[in-house]
Write a protein that binds this DNA or RNA. Structure first.
Lengths: 337, 337
DNA sequence: TAATTTTGAGTTATCGATAACACTCATTTT
DNA sequence: AAAATGAGTGTTATCGATAACTCAAAATTA
């Protein structure tokens, strides 16, 4: 491995002079500069960023922790974060917790160990509190994305889960649906709680009551346990529409329904949160509350970088990004029976 | 920031003893070990991995460079790579080149600067040669994914682009199509060349000739230039089916067709390479040659880790993963006119 | 011309960890 | 009882870079 000492020797100068050439600091004569540059090129020199970070106490690396790399919402968010980080001259260290608290903890340790300058943190759920406190203890600046964590004061970029859910359910009610099931994520996640609240409010505002036997709490990531769906379908007064709390759940629900020979929207209307990115564009099918994923990333990154570089310590900022109701073909007016 | 020296002082031992406790090396009395452990916990000590890597000359970090983080093929591949890296105790540094050579170069510099132990490299195209040579110069082990680069000898995990393309086009010909257009990626990418060869062979094997005016070379990533599609549609003897060389191109084509009021498969049948992951499961629509994306990642990672840890230097290994023809509803038998 | 300033470097200490070696005691061997 | 062994720990040098300080020679000023 080539070091500044190798360069220094070949160029007949001291290591410090090489360092000065690399960083364009101090005074160097044009002749020396040229000579050093030449040697660096000849030897294909690349600075060792660990050594540099060690002394500078700054890595110029920011970390983005997402919960599901296969979910288009998060990959689009990642693009937004990456672009914003790049613009400000930071490198981005991606991490994927897979909605798994233990993995998340592992990545937090890695992040601390790597001494990154800041973290964009999409938590797996309320229990992420400990991991965020861990960051606080070590004074790593962070911005919380997508899910609010009770007990944590920090900059946040969130969606309007309640309002979005209200709009979706309102749309279903407007189509005549009265028996609307909800397949929700874990109650441990703020967005799941708020989406339930929105679901509830939409009912109440329309003079309908909420029947809790139509509400199921699962996990955002994968829809494996089909018994819940079975219970809904065999309900004495079964639902005519389903509100899936996110896109992945909706996929699972639709697949299961299809296996059971049920049609969407023929037999059941389906709505969900979050769109499907590029892939969803092939055949825009699901009626969704689409969130501005790219902005989650770019705005969050902006807040983070301001925190890191800004001299003034602002109040905590909480940005709420609206979602957009996109009505497509997975919903239709209730047929009378 | 807490260091081993802080721990050492508080515990009344030398820094070396702390290091020994951390790494479970050397002989330490149970009493000292316990005392040091206690102090480490009290002070929330986290080792500085940069300092450690600097002296060990090993980072325990591997890098995965993909070309499109919003493409489900690559995110699934990433999951495979991540899982495999995790299993072997490595951390994974994701990087996303966005099909952009300059960004790729930037990430290669970062990778070199970070002194990662190895790289899983999905190149943007043939010009990635320079970037791979850069890695070779610095003796960073790497495995090439998905796209073969002329002039590079290395372990590779590739798909069977030619065979997959042949199957797709064969399927279309079997349905009676004779005028089959191809919307291809850049000729700078090996998979694009091979998919064209497969397209060609399918024609020849069926006793058909290939008409180059039906073949368009664009870019894998986004389908912006619609003039090419227009030209095809206004061809004197227009195509009845389109083979899009990858999923992203297919999305673009279908969106454009829809804007023009054309139906798939009513007016045109469409096939493409690569499936759509979770998101595509909502409404399996496109007939595709599906590649085992997860395996690309996990197998590639396995080869890489063998390279890094293996004592024997094997011959270069070239793994070809088969694709599977999934016939869905974007293709139908040619109606006579 | 002597004094001062500027230019263009070099020296040394440091960041946080670990390897290699050294050095006590206590215990075992001869 | 002297010598050898081994357990437990400390010292010093090192990884590759930069900050802070130093210093000689050249250029400028008085």
């Amino acid at each position: 491995m080539i070091t500044i000492y190798d360069i220094a020797e070949k160029a007949g100068v001291s290591a410090m002079t090489v360092s000065r050439v690399i960083n364009n600091t101090g005074r160097i004569s044009e002749a020396t500069r040229k000579r050093v540059r030449k040697v660096m090129e000849d030897l294909h020199y690349i600075p060792n960023s660990m050594a540099r970070s060690l002394v500078l106490q700054k890595t110029n690396i920011l970390s983005l922790l997402i919960t599901d790399i296969t979910n288009p919402f998060y990959t689009t968010l990642a693009r937004g974060a990456e672009d914003a980080a790049m613009r400000s001259g930071y490198r981005l260290l991606f991490a994927n917790s897979d909605e798994d608290y233990a993995k998340e903890k592992g990545y937090v340790d890695m992040i601390l160990s790597a001494r990154v300058d800041g973290v964009l943190f999409a938590p797996t759920g309320d229990h992420s509190l400990e991991n965020l406190e861990q960051l606080q203890k070590h004074q790593i600046p962070f911005v919380v994305l997508d899910r609010e964590i009770p007990g944590i004061e920090a900059d946040m970029v969130l969606g309007d889960s309640k309002e979005g859910a209200r709009k979706l359910v309102d749309h279903l009610i407007g189509l005549g649906h009265r028996r609307i099931a909800m397949i929700n994520g874990s109650q441990d996640v703020s967005t799941a709680r708020l989406r339930y609240t929105g679901y509830r409010e939409a009912h109440l505002l329309n003079g309908l009551s909420v029947e809790d036997s139509l509400v199921v709490h699962l996990n955002y990531r994968d829809f494996q346990d089909e018994s819940a769906l079975d219970a809904l379908l065999h309900h004495e007064d079964p639902p005519t529409a389903i509100f899936a709390a996110n896109n992945m759940l909706a996929v699972g629900v639709i697949q299961s329904l299809r296996q059971r020979g049920l049609q969407v929207p023929g037999d059941l209307s389906i709505v969900c949160f979050d769109d499907f990115g590029m892939a969803g564009a092939i055949n825009p099918f699901l009626t969704v509350a689409s969130q501005p994923a790219y902005q989650f990333g770019s705005l969050g990154m902006q807040l983070l970088i301001e925190r890191i570089e800004g001299e003034v310590i602002h109040e905590n900022r909480k940005m709420i990004l609206p979602s957009e109701l996109l009505i497509r073909t997975s919903t239709q007016a209730l047929k009378r029976r």
